[in-house]
Design a protein around this nucleic acid. Structure first.
Lengths: 250, 250
DNA sequence: CGCCGATTTGAAATTTATCAAAGTTTGTGG
DNA sequence: CCACAAACTTTGATAAATTTCAAATCGGCG
């Protein structure tokens, strides 16, 4: 095993927000984003810790906060009356979560801590006020919103039109890409604290079937996932399987 | 048939942007949105017409425009190497489309005219400039982005965790809700210029299977869809099937 | 040690896709 | 206005994929 599975991967950082490759439409957002970081940090009222499995935001409750995820992973999900769950997206350290309630109350579904997490709590009214006075911040948040939408759209494509094996390949490639923005070494092997059951609920599969899919990927020598650790053994094969193009992530 | 299928349903209007029910967080966005309309209209450089089936935006091409959909329907979609297509969302008159390329080049996938459409073309650089100087406009666009994300998230839930019958029910209820924002009479019966094949590609089904699903819904006396016309015969039954809650649409 | 959650495997049942073909509608050119 | 072609809808039969149900294993943890 090329990496130590016990290394502290969930340390504090701001990867998604602070680091970005140069873009077609250059400097503009980089400026916004770097400036933004300070603004957002200033808006953090206090640090909070949520235990594994606890809800940050629940549909019913009228939460008034957004969160800057500092360590650990969380996910947003929907619970259906038929007893199933669809996970919309997983969030990794650096992600800003719960911002949709900024403008649309009640519409961020559920947010749940997948591991123990540390977050910076941001009062939504202060954030609103900051947005109104700081145009650069507004652009940065807009950029985040577009990016989130692009990610969710890809998940829809995944679930709607890719076969389970290709879908799983796409999922792990996307995660690797997202993590590697802040930690380039995480592109082909990374710690992943998710259970098979959680991922299955993100991919629209049963846990049993997803387990078989993983075996298939292992037998193809494409990748492995065990003990909370993902290894993308054959990146090219995976990219081909997944029909993956990371441009939507930047 | 209670409605004339030949009535001009695709007339010019701005439903999605101009008309909105009151929200939990009141006046704020209404202000923004109504003010915004004028600003957006002012940004429209010229009116363009696209023929049915033509692409407004194609992945490869570096388009520099967003569009205000004035009449007709369009859709955003992804084409996969395996020959399938996933439709991400359909757009109805009043929708602002192609805005994601505002900040993320290359990431609006494909946009295609489902019917003959008339659009107001908005130069993306002018829109950017307007956003920078007009904070209210920025907030309105942010609101639109959040709403779009909520809609796509629901589609993901649909495709990932609802059975085809419930999925179809949800689809038609959502469309009805979206249309009824501007045209209250369209909530339970509306013109719908989509083919079964298009809807199947939005729902992650084959056209053949979706056709059987439609038959099932018809036999349930829940709804019918033929000749480009949708009738939601038993709204309660549909809502129950779909586990539908329109709050994400407002 | 025993329990609990997560993973793994097998077998059967169900759902959904695929293939094929017949109707039907729609649009176009003569 | 008709004839024809193309696209869309509908149905049946069959094949394939996926879920469901059941049970065994594994590992961590009190």
């Amino acid at each position: 095993m090329p990496h130590d599975p016990f290394s502290p991967a969930h340390q504090f950082n701001h990867c998604s927000l602070s680091t970005n490759k140069s873009m077609g439409r250059p400097a503009l957002h980089m400026d916004c984003l770097t400036k933004t970081m300070g603004v957002l940090d200033a808006l953090v009222m206090r640090k909070r810790v949520f235990t594994k499995g606890s809800d940050l935001i629940h549909e019913d409750q009228q939460g008034q906060n957004a969160y800057l995820l500092q360590s650990g992973w969380s996910c947003s999900y929907a619970l259906l009356r038929n007893g199933t769950r669809q996970i919309i997206n997983f969030h990794v350290p650096g992600d800003l979560i719960g911002i949709r309630r900024l403008l649309i109350p009640d519409v961020d579904g559920n947010l749940c801590a997948v591991t123990r997490i540390e977050v910076g709590e941001i009062d939504i009214e202060s954030l609103l006020a900051a947005l109104r006075s700081n145009n650069c911040l507004a652009m940065a948040i807009l950029w985040l919103a577009f990016r989130d939408e692009a990610i969710v759209s890809q998940h829809l494509v995944d679930v709607g039109r890719r076969r389970p094996v290709n879908r799983a390949a796409h999922f792990f490639l996307e995660l690797g890409s997202r993590l590697s923005i802040a930690h380039p070494d995480m592109k082909t092997a990374y710690e992943c604290p998710l259970t098979q059951s959680l991922i299955a609920d993100a991919l629209g599969l049963t846990a049993v079937h997803f387990n078989r899919v993983l075996r298939h990927l292992r037998e193809l020598n494409a990748m492995t996932f065990h003990d909370g650790w993902v290894e993308l053994l054959d990146f090219d094969k995976l990219e081909h399987l997944a029909d993956f193009d990371a441009s939507y992530l930047q």
